[in-house]
Write a protein that binds this DNA or RNA. Structure first.
Lengths: 369, 369
DNA sequence: CTGTTAGCGCTTTCAT
DNA sequence: ATGAAAGCGCTAACAG
């Protein structure tokens, strides 16, 4: 290997390797750095022979353009971020999120974008955002009243918010939470249920009015009750984390406290699966003695026993749509001040975890009155 | 807002914002760029008052250090990559992977590292790696004979390989695949099963010998059979993707082709869940008429009906260990030439998807002989 | 068609 | 305690 300049280190073993830079290749090939760059990025601007020779030399030397340097001069990272206020551990443990990420990933990947997960750094999303080398972010799980939402807005990074309304000049994706919830409650009411327990998704912040996913879904449940001339007492609503364990323990606790609903409406399938597990543990048969409705329609609903009646929302498509919107925004940087909002549909999937309340139940109710 | 230099654009609406650079802050605060940098990174080197003032000005101007520029001069990205040969869509759809990622993420996050997902770009992992701005990677799903493994080795990026042996100077994490598989097979043999179907995980490449996860597990199954004086015919082994659908269709196809195993050994829980679904569809009762054993022990095994007997492997801890090893390697850049390999244990979890073959079955077997 | 050169934005050494 | 200036490695406008 002749002609090695004195500056370079001679590599004998594995270690002490020096990264090959563009200048090294240029020198070795007897051309300028620019030529090397062109050989990779705009081969047409070089004579075919030269281009080939340069790439050959580069190959032999094991040259790979430094990705960070490339980002810096290109002025873009070709990476988008998925932002969530939860710790990553919790994020990946959540099958809803996995499905959403699947959607996002499928489009970013196809377009050659990298995917970076952004979660609070030392408790701060703003800090995490500052350190993130992304061209834009898809934000999920951020309630419209999340304290760090401002940081995002100020950040000036192109953003698509999922499950929260857009702010001016930005984009958002929503689903018809209220409609789906209303359908679920109507279904239950139609079957004859009157004593219902609601498992709300644990709100990161307390919500006034019907803001946030939880608020919108609750509003839907309520609307159905009102339409039937009934009302859903606040005492029938309890919070539960959107996890199997969370659903199970919330249900068991309610039951232990004496609640005897004939049906449970959950704002997440994970929680619903937990209720199912809890019911099994208590020896309560589903759906004969207890009806359960979930929300999301994750793949797991088809493997529970019985298969779960739930409100479908197109989670994967939501991810795809969010990614596409963001990529679109990157291409046309804030062309107008309009905020683009896409609302996706929801619909009830009736499976086998719901049925009319048992005769006993009905009687009980009658007696109780 | 006086004193705005002519060069800057006056911002009226939302758009046309110009990113605030360090030089802008320096000018506004009447100090040098270095001072601004110090104010953020080494405040001790500035008088307390100056530092505070600078940060104040920076705040007011909405200055945020450019992360890419910072990476370039720092010479490190503070990001690690999770590398997988699958498309990201498939990756997130796989609950095994989610659990693994959960482990990796929990430690990278705690140490302030970003997490980037790396998957083949235009079919090439090498290309994807070239574009990835990471300090190191955790590679999973790469069989030791994967064609692009060389690219990784050559890349010179600190790497921890999961489920494949380390190469010199690198690190690896393995689990006792063979031992776990042997336990599973012994369990079945002990119950009296003789006609067994194996659902191997679809090998990305054809494997000779007992290489790869699939090879090691198969070797374990075989060892148990041999220890019992029996043998596992090659015809009893079929490939199936490690997904619910994959398991279901492979099982149905085998059944349709006339196979009548009394037990199925799956190399993944996902496939096992699929077999469960397929059996239900065929009206075959589990475990009375068919025993099923999975592999991995994912959370979902506890919600199948019946709960799945499976080989546990510490997936989450595997992720944590991989991340920790990698971070360690980053701290001490290839201190020695030894390759560090960590082998984690596996163990059989007997739940309710396995039982002794039914009397009918035994008779059938007898008749068949 | 090819080479020179000026950035990209920040960090950090070295002089003041 | 503070500032000037030299990189980090690459891209692309601009000469030749």
């Amino acid at each position: 290997m002749p002609g090695v300049p004195g500056q370079e280190e001679l590599v004998v073993g594995e270690a002490t390797e020096q990264r090959v830079r563009i200048a090294d290749v240029a020198r070795e090939a007897g051309v300028s750095k620019a030529a090397v760059s062109f050989a990779f990025n705009q081969p047409d601007r070089l004579s075919a022979g030269t281009a080939a020779r340069i790439r050959d030399v580069a190959d032999r030397m094991g040259y790979r353009p430094h990705p960070v340097a490339r980002m810096l001069s290109a002025g873009q990272t070709s990476t988008i971020g998925i932002l969530s206020p939860q710790a990553l551990g919790a994020v990946f443990a959540n099958p809803f999120f996995a499905l959403f990420a699947e959607g996002v990933a499928s489009v970013t990947e196809e377009r050659g974008f990298g995917l970076l997960f952004i979660s609070p750094f030392h408790g701060s999303l703003a800090t995490a955002l500052d350190r993130a080398t992304v061209d834009g972010v898809v934000a999920i799980g951020l309630d419209e009243r999340h304290p760090e939402l401002d940081a995002l807005r100020r950040g000036g990074l192109p953003t698509v918010v999922v499950d929260a309304p857009a702010w001016p000049g930005h984009r958002a994706i929503l689903v018809d939470d209220e409609g789906g919830a209303r359908e679920a409650a109507s279904h239950l009411l139609g079957l004859g249920h009157r004593e219902v327990l609601v498992l709300a998704v644990q709100p990161a912040i307390d919500e006034s009015g019907d803001q946030g996913v939880s608020g919108r879904r609750l509003a839907g449940y309520r609307a159905a009750f009102e339409a039937a001339g009934l009302s859903l007492p606040g005492s029938a609503v309890v919070d539960a984390p959107a996890t199997i364990e969370g659903g199970e323990s919330a249900f068991l606790q309610a039951w232990t406290s004496g609640a005897r609903p004939s049906a449970v409406m959950c704002m997440s399938d994970a929680a619903a699966a937990g209720v199912l597990a809890g019911a099994r543990r208590l020896g309560v048969r589903v759906p004969e003695e207890l009806s359960i409705v979930g929300f999301d329609d994750l793949p797991l609903t088809r493997f529970t026993d019985p298969p779960l009646t739930t409100v479908h929302q197109p989670v994967r498509r939501k991810g795809e749509a969010a990614a596409r919107m963001l990529l679109e925004a990157l291409r046309r940087p804030s062309g107008d001040d309009q905020d683009h909002t896409l609302v996706l549909e929801t619909r009830l999937m009736v499976r086998r975890s719901t049925a009319a309340p048992s005769g006993d139940r009905c009687q009980e109710v009658v007696v109780a009155r």
